[in-house]
C-alpha cells in the first residue's frame, strides 16, 4: 500500500494547512469513505447518533446490533461496523482541535478533500461544532489520565489536655481523613507546624496558578 497521500477530487490546490485528521488519513477513515457515500441518509444519521453517544458514554455491542433491523436499506452489520469505526475516528479527530484552531469552514473543506459526499457535511459539522460540544469538551477533560483527586476531606481538631508524660499539654493537632478518587482512604495526623507548611504551600500554588492563567490569557490564542 502506498503511503503517499492521494489528493481527492478534481485536482484542487491543497491548502497550506494540515487536514484536521492529520497529515496521513487514518486507515479507519480511509476504509469508510466508499461505503459511507453509498449509505442511505437515515442509516447514516442513526450511526452518527450512536457515535456521539459513544463519546459521552459507553455503547454496548447489543445497542449497536439493535439498529441493524431498523434500517430501511439492507446494510450489513460488517459495513455498519466499518462506517461506525470510521465516523468515530473522524469525529474524534474533529474534537481534538479547539474551536478556535479548527473553523467549521475548514472542517468542511477537509471533508471534501477526503471525498465525503457534501450531503453529509452539515450533519458531521453539527457533531463537532454543535450544541453538544460543551458537554463533549467537559467529557474530554474529565476522562484525561491523571493522578487521583481528593474526593473527600474529613478533619478534626484535637487539643491534647494531658498525657502520660505531661499533666497539662494544651497542644492542638489535626487529624485528616482523605478519600481519594481511586478509593483509597488515608488517615493521618498533622502536627500544627506541618499544617502551616501545607496551608502555605497550597495557598502559594493557588496564587501561582492564578498568575499562570492570567499570563496565558495575555498570550496569543491559537
Amino acid at each position: 500500500m502506498s503511503i503517499v497521500q492521494v489528493q481527492g477530487g478534481g485536482g484542487r490546490v491543497a491548502s497550506d494547512r494540515t487536514s484536521f485528521v492529520g497529515a496521513r488519513v487514518p486507515p479507519e477513515i480511509k476504509a469508510m469513505i466508499k461505503p459511507l457515500n453509498k449509505l442511505d441518509k437515515n442509516t447514516f444519521r442513526k450511526v452518527l447518533k450512536l457515535v456521539v453517544q459513544s463519546l459521552e458514554d459507553e455503547v454496548t455491542y447489543s445497542e449497536f446490533k439493535a439498529i441493524v433491523p431498523t434500517l430501511e436499506d439492507a446494510t450489513s452489520e460488517e459495513i455498519l461496523g466499518i462506517v461506525f469505526a470510521g465516523l468515530l475516528c473522524l469525529v474524534k479527530c474533529g474534537l481534538r482541535h479547539t474551536t478556535t484552531s479548527l473553523k467549521q469552514q475548514h472542517f468542511k473543506e477537509d471533508l471534501d478533500e477526503l471525498g465525503i459526499s457534501s450531503e453529509l457535511h452539515s450533519d458531521l459539522a453539527s457533531c463537532v461544532f454543535g450544541t453538544k460540544r460543551a458537554v463533549l469538551d467537559q467529557q474530554l477533560l474529565t476522562s484525561r489520565p491523571r493522578l487521583p483527586q481528593l474526593s473527600e476531606l474529613k478533619w478534626r481538631v484535637d487539643v491534647a489536655i494531658s498525657t502520660s508524660v505531661l499533666n497539662r499539654v494544651l497542644e492542638p493537632s489535626i487529624l485528616m481523613e482523605m478519600t481519594l478518587s481511586n478509593g483509597q482512604i488515608k488517615v493521618f495526623e498533622v502536627p500544627v507546624s506541618q499544617f502551616h507548611q501545607l496551608r502555605y504551600n497550597v495557598a502559594y500554588v493557588l496564587k501561582q496558578m492564578e498568575d499562570l492563567e492570567k499570563r496565558s490569557i495575555l498570550k496569543i490564542q491559537d
Binding site: 474524534k92 474534537l95 481534538r96 482541535h97 479547539t98 484552531s101 474530554l140 476522562s143 484525561r144 489520565p145 491534647a160 493537632s173 487529624l175 485528616m176 488517615v187 493521618f188 495526623e189 498533622v190 502536627p191 506541618q194 499544617f195 507548611q197 501545607l198 504551600n201 500554588v205 501561582q208 496558578m209 499562570l212 496565558s216 491559537d222
Partner: peptide, 25 residues
C-alpha cells in the same frame, strides 16, 4: 503524639497541560 501516622513533608509541582490524546492545544 500517639497517632502512628504523621504528616512529615509536603512537595508539589505546578503544571500547565498543553495537550492530551484526545485534544490538542
Amino acid at each position: 503524639t500517639i497517632h502512628p501516622k504523621q504528616l512529615e513533608e509536603v512537595k508539589w509541582r505546578l503544571n500547565l497541560q498543553m495537550a492530551q490524546s484526545t485534544r490538542l492545544k
